[in-house]
């Protein structure tokens, strides 16, 4: 059973998740027609920068985060920025978009100089996230859990991070049991997505390098 305290925690996380979104004007640019490859590339870079800023604003609201060691805060954010970005953009692809928008987005990403080798794992991830039909609370909590990953590089006090992540994992487990009673494996499947996310980190780093070269 979810305790009153956990309900409070969930509300804080979901409110922060909803409050801090990519600004409408930036997001709208993604849907405008006819961009050249260079413009697509610059647009995606602008989106990535905006997503990182949104991520930091969201993370500041995670109870206890700002009381962590300052450099550990940086290490956690740096270590999770790419994963949180893919997790967030996956929801854009899985939400019911007005007809044609998803195709325009996909087309834009395919025509931005990113090679097929990185595209496939990314769209596979979007598909596997879409199949889960996550509710907003699950998306917000999973993002917070991704950020509070204790074993990120350069994190000094891993125990302190664990103490923040644990209640989130417990809450997500209970939420999954409530939301998906007929799917006892649902929580495990969600955590499985986090493993898939980590592989995207590797692809993203290689993608940046190849972008720089062309």
């Amino acid at each position: 059973q979810i305790t009153k305290e956990q309900l409070g925690l969930m509300k804080v996380i979901v409110d922060a998740y909803n409050t801090h979104q990519i600004p409408q004007d930036v997001a709208k640019k993604l849907l405008q027609e006819q961009y050249s490859e260079e413009e697509n590339f610059l647009l995606l870079t602008e989106m990535a920068t905006s997503q990182v800023q949104v991520l930091v604003e969201f993370t500041k609201n995670i109870p206890g985060f700002l009381s962590l060691d300052h450099e550990d805060q940086i290490a956690l954010l740096k270590g999770s920025a790419v994963e949180a970005m893919f997790l967030r953009s996956a929801q854009v692809f899985s939400r019911k978009m007005p007809n044609g928008h998803t195709e325009v987005l996909e087309e834009r990403i395919r025509k931005s100089g990113i090679s097929e080798e990185f595209m496939t794992p990314m769209f596979n991830f979007y598909k596997s996230i879409g199949e889960l039909h996550m509710v907003q609370e699950e998306q917000a909590l999973l993002t917070a859990i991704t950020i509070l990953t204790p074993d990120r590089a350069y994190v000094k006090d891993q125990k302190a991070v664990e103490r923040l992540q644990e209640p989130m994992l417990d809450l997500l487990r209970k939420l999954c049991a409530l939301q998906h009673p007929q799917e006892p494996q649902y929580f495990a499947r969600l955590l499985g997505r986090l493993t898939e996310l980590r592989t995207l980190n590797h692809y993203h780093a290689e993608m940046l390098t190849s972008w720089r070269m062309n």
């Binding site: 920068t49 990182v52 800023q53 930091v56 805060q73 940086i74 954010l77 740096k78 940046l208």
Partner: peptide, 21 residues
Amino acid sequence: PASNLGLEDIIRKALMGNLEE
């Protein structure tokens, strides 16, 4: 493009809360 160094700058600046620059 936002290089890795850029990523840390964006994070530090956002953490300090002065996004307007």
